[in-house]
């Protein structure tokens, strides 16, 4: 196989294609694990990817109540933000802070996607997105602790530090736990997923179908890949630092996530926020312990 030159645009594009396909398979595996635990045969592994592709050829109608440019633009912004986060983080090993910024854009987009439709169900979803945004403390606490250890938030430096000094999970176990909670909140059917709860139909995505839903799901697959990657590389970077080990470890973590999502009930919105705050506080306590 002929490899394109590193940092050429074709290289970056192929990386995006690979990551979205692989994360689509991972999300299919996640559903399969949940189904097996609940003693169902479950859908095939490629089901999530087929859903994503299906939406690209489905008819798109725009509701009368929606505010039109925003309705499309903010869904595209979500996908664009994760493309940026993926290129800066997993591909180029750049600053971690940009991934956090993209995560913030994701949260704002969730809110905007719900509001732009004008549907009451979507508005419930978007107001819950604001509520769950208050619980993103682990996202901020964990990098701060990592910075205290490594004196850098460039991902390449963090990996190099861990290759010399051993994985950060040994030094900051509770911060790793908090980041793991963050990864859980981004998987489908998770206990903290108040935004996607079935009690409000499909949350903020209720009125998004057709092409826009396809683009949204593409963004979410990339988001799953990026967050899993961040968790693995920042806390287990001493062992997991080549593409093969990263992809294998992602399959392993997806198994664990499947078990968690299958065996836990959905918590109430306020409890979800409280539980995530407890884990963030535990991560802060990590500083006092070491």
């Amino acid at each position: 196989m002929i490899y394109p030159a590193t940092n050429s645009m074709l290289y970056l594009f192929l990386e995006i294609i690979t990551a979205s396909l692989f994360a689509g398979l991972l999300l299919g595996l996640h559903r399969k694990v949940i189904a097996r635990i609940q003693r169902r045969p479950g859908p095939p592994l490629i089901q999530y990817m087929l859903h994503t592709l299906k939406f690209f050829i489905k008819e798109l109608t725009i509701p009368d109540t929606s505010s039109m440019p925003l309705y499309v633009a903010i869904a595209l912004a979500l996908a664009g933000a994760w493309v940026l986060a993926f290129l800066v983080g997993p591909v180029l090993l750049g600053p971690y802070i940009i991934i956090i910024m993209c995560y913030a854009v994701h949260k704002v987009s969730e809110h905007g996607i719900g509001l732009a439709t004008g549907s009451p169900y979507a508005k419930f979803g978007s107001s819950r997105a604001v509520l769950s945004a208050t619980s993103e403390m682990p996202l901020v606490v964990a990098p701060a602790l990592v910075f205290v250890r490594t004196n850098s938030l460039i991902l390449q430096d963090i990996i190099n530090y861990q290759i010399i000094n051993g994985s950060l999970v040994n030094q900051l176990p509770l911060a790793a736990l908090a980041t793991f909670i963050l990864v859980i909140t981004k998987t489908p059917f998770n206990p903290f997923g108040i935004v996607y709860g079935k009690d409000i139909i499909s949350g903020f995505k209720t009125e998004h179908f057709g092409v826009i839903r396809g683009v949204l799901m593409f963004g979410e697959t990339l988001a799953f890949f990026v967050l899993l990657w961040c968790f693995l590389v920042i806390f287990f970077g001493g062992v997991i630092n080549t593409p093969l080990t990263i992809l294998l470890a992602m399959i392993g973590v997806t198994f664990i996530l499947g078990f968690i999502c299958a065996l836990t009930p959905m918590v109430a919105p306020y409890h979800s926020v409280m539980i995530q705050w407890i884990f963030a506080l535990l991560a802060i306590a990590n500083v006092l312990l070491i």
Binding site: G80, V211, V215
Partner: peptide
Amino acid sequence: LLTFFIPLSSYYIGQ
């Protein structure tokens, strides 16, 4: 270019 045009072009290609 990738950040801006991948979602946009996929939206229009889907249309």
